[in-house]
Amino acid sequence: MAEVIDAASRWAMPLMFFLIPLVAYLRGVKVYEAFIEGAEQGFATAVRMIPFLVAIFAAMGMFRGSGAMDLLMRLVAAPARWLGVPPEVLPLMLVRPLSGSAALGMLSDLLRVYGPDSYLGWLGSTIQGSTDTTFYILSVYYGSVGVRNPRHSVLAGIIGDLAGFAGAVLATRLLFPH
């Protein structure tokens, strides 16, 4: 099972590099021109991230540098361990459903401090991709059509987020290469 998932991880992206241009070319798409037009947005996307990264990096840097992080870790370490969650990823879990950009900043901070190939780096990366920005999506989608009573949507969304986090913890524990 682990080998299959590992192979899927290794093959997913290269296969897309192969299949997408092939299918596009056969269908008469101007592949090179389309690529250039899409790539143009890359710069804007990265630059748009800067204010979010600065805000999160500054706040998290201060929180760690002041010793507040150690204090919080000591406070929540026991219950977090009991749940099998390293306390270092709790801020990411808290922010994930609220803001996609802020969560990306949190993850980036985590990768920078602990390293992308560490256990925490893997877990953080998995948490980021495990679910989407629940509260943002609910407010934008319902807001766009004037629905004021979302019924059980909020609860279902939160349950999904929690299950995603649990899945991230389990999958990382199972598949993290030692």
Binding site: I5, D6, A8, S9, R10, A12, M13, L111, P116, D117, G121, W122, S125, T126, I127, G129, S130, T131, H152, S153, L155, A156, G157, I159, G160, D161, L162, A163, G164, F165, A166, G167, A168, L170, A171, T172, L174, L175, F176, P177
Partner: peptide, 26 residues
């Protein structure tokens, strides 16, 4: 990272968990 795409598998498992849970809860 020496293996940036390594998390594709773990992410897929986690996101399937979240979607199944959200749809079931719904």
């Amino acid at each position: 990272s020496s293996n940036p795409t390594g998390i594709v598998g773990t992410t897929l498992i986690a996101t399937v968990c979240s979607t199944v849970a959200a749809v079931t809860a719904d």
